[in-house]
């Protein structure tokens, strides 16, 4: 249920952000290893698009409308205590404060289409589950969570489509944070590593809210 790691990969496959959230540091994974990791993920993502099985190709070409909608799952990564009674406990100001340039209590409130149609979406291993969200501009957000799920409501199987949807919601919010704190930083050069303390802070807040 806990987020272990977040990676952001630019459209050429270079790593521009990586962050570990676990207390224990991974044994000797230096920044070079992370770069290699990012490019392997980028490459496998590309290979995956060519592996669609024949049966699926045949059925897809016949039916034109395939549903790639990701439903909106409320308050993923948003602070708890949304009811009025709990809010009065915290006082008048919401614990999170404003969401940058997004008005309201959540970044978005409707379901959306996934831009990731034939690339890798989820990778389940013994110890963790990794989710990938790709934007229309080629940016990839990768999150690895320790075994269990992203949602506390489903502890049994981590191989559920629901978990992929929760991850998509979460990573889209990280994308919103990126569009605010990284894109609007005039001193940030495109495609370069992200060095923004505001972005780090907001990401940590959102990850903490997820547990």
């Amino acid at each position: 249920m806990a987020v272990r790691m977040l990676l952001v990969i630019n459209k050429s496959g270079g790593l521009i952000y990586h962050r570990s959230f676990e207390g224990d540091v991974d044994k000797g994974l230096n920044s070079n290893d992370y770069l290699i990791l990012a490019s392997i993920l980028h490459g496998s993502f590309a290979i995956a698009t060519q592996l669609t099985p024949k049966a699926l190709q045949l059925s897809q070409s016949s039916s034109k409308n395939i549903d790639y909608t990701v439903p909106y799952i409320p308050y993923v990564g948003m602070p708890r205590g949304r009811t009025s009674s709990e809010r009065s406990k915290y006082g008048a100001s919401a614990p999170q404060g404003k969401l940058g340039s997004f008005k309201g209590d959540d970044f978005f409130k409707e379901s959306f289409q996934s831009w990731n149609r034939s690339g890798v979406r989820q990778l389940c291993t013994d110890q963790f589950t990794m989710y990938i969200y790709q934007t229309m501009t080629g940016l990839k957000f990768v999150v690895a969570c320790s075994q269990g799920t992203l949602s506390p409501a489903n502890p049994s199987s981590s191989n559920n489509i629901f978990n992929i949807h929760v991850a998509d919601n979460f990573l889209r919010k990280i994308y919103c944070l990126y569009s605010d704190y990284v894109m609007k930083d005039p001193f940030y050069s495109l495609e370069m590593p992200i060095k923004s303390t505001l972005f780090d802070k907001k990401v940590k807040q959102m990850v903490d809210n997820l547990v």
Binding site: A48, T49, L51, T52, P53, L56, Q60, I66, N116, R117, S118, G119, V120, R121, Q122, L123, C124, T125, D126, Q127, F128, N159, I164
Partner: peptide, 14 residues
């Protein structure tokens, strides 16, 4: 401890 890939979800198949 061994960490092995169990499943990979891609597009509409796994």
């Amino acid at each position: 401890t061994a960490n092995d890939v169990r499943s990979i979800s891609i597009g509409k198949y796994r």
